Amino acid sequence: MTVPPDLQAAIVDLDGTLVDTLGDFCAALDAVHAELQLARVPRSAVEHMVGKGSEHLIRSALQHVGADERLYERAWAAYQRHYRAINGRHAEVYPGVREGLDLLQGAGLRLACVTNKPTAFARDLLAAKALAGYFPLVFGGDAFERKKPHPQPLLETCRALGSAPARTLMLGDSSNDAAAARAAGCPVVLVTYGYNHGEPVRAVDADGFVASLADVLLPR
């Protein structure tokens, strides 16, 4: 793994990296589609839709069941209500996450969480899973003009952290994270247990892959 030895900080993704939130997404979409009298979207399909923000998830779910795209605004409003109500209930922190975050902090790295999930939902989820204390900075998909895979969220977060992109490690689970990191000039390591839109994660251009966040700082 070709990660620089003089890292200053780490930016960590949320869904699929820190917390398995697929159950939350499925529960929220089930409630939305029931409210709109639409067919439910199977879990296997939802897994391929997550990672690009709530807008993409909702539009993809509507398209999957052949719904009129004009339902989007109603679906969006319903999703905000239902997701807020269940946020974290069907989610679990991945094994090794707390150990990995402890190691990163112990190595003196400043940490930030950057996700395409709305910031308020991200903060609530981190708090619910007792992870908020690791992240003085949390930026969601509504924090900047562009979302990952655009580099803007990473570059703005590096500025907020006071770290150089080349010395700021991106930890994620998908091609979105890797593409944002490459464009921003950050080294990137991906976990092998996340979502990645249903595609093999090891096919993504990254500097390394780990089966657990606890392994990130191990020599390779």
Score class of each variant (00 low, 15 high):
V114I: 03
K147Y: 09
A107N: 13
R81V: 10
F25H: 01
G108S: 15
R98D: 11
A77P: 02
F121A: 12
T115D: 07
A85H: 15
A45K: 00
D68R: 05
G23F: 03
L103S: 12
L126A: 11
V93M: 07
R123P: 04
G16L: 14
A34V: 02
W76E: 14
Y94F: 15
G53F: 05
A132D: 11
I86N: 01
E145Q: 11
C26Q: 07
I86W: 12
E47G: 02
R123E: 15
F139H: 14
A61Q: 09
V32L: 01
L126Q: 11
R89T: 15
H64C: 09
R40Y: 08
M49E: 00
Y83F: 15
L57Q: 03
L125D: 05
A31D: 12
G141M: 03
L137N: 04
R81M: 08
Q80M: 04
L62D: 00
A61P: 10
L71I: 10
T17M: 14
A112R: 03
A27G: 01
L62S: 02
N116S: 15
W76T: 04
A122N: 00
D68M: 06
L103V: 01
A91I: 05
H33F: 14
R59N: 03
R98F: 12
E73A: 15
R43Y: 11
A122R: 01
A112S: 10
D68I: 07
D142L: 04
L29G: 02
A10E: 11
L36P: 00
I11H: 13
Q63A: 14
F135I: 02
D142R: 02
H90E: 15
R70I: 03
K52V: 10
W76R: 13
V138Y: 03
K129L: 14
E73P: 06
E35D: 04
H33V: 07
F139K: 09
A75T: 03
R74C: 05
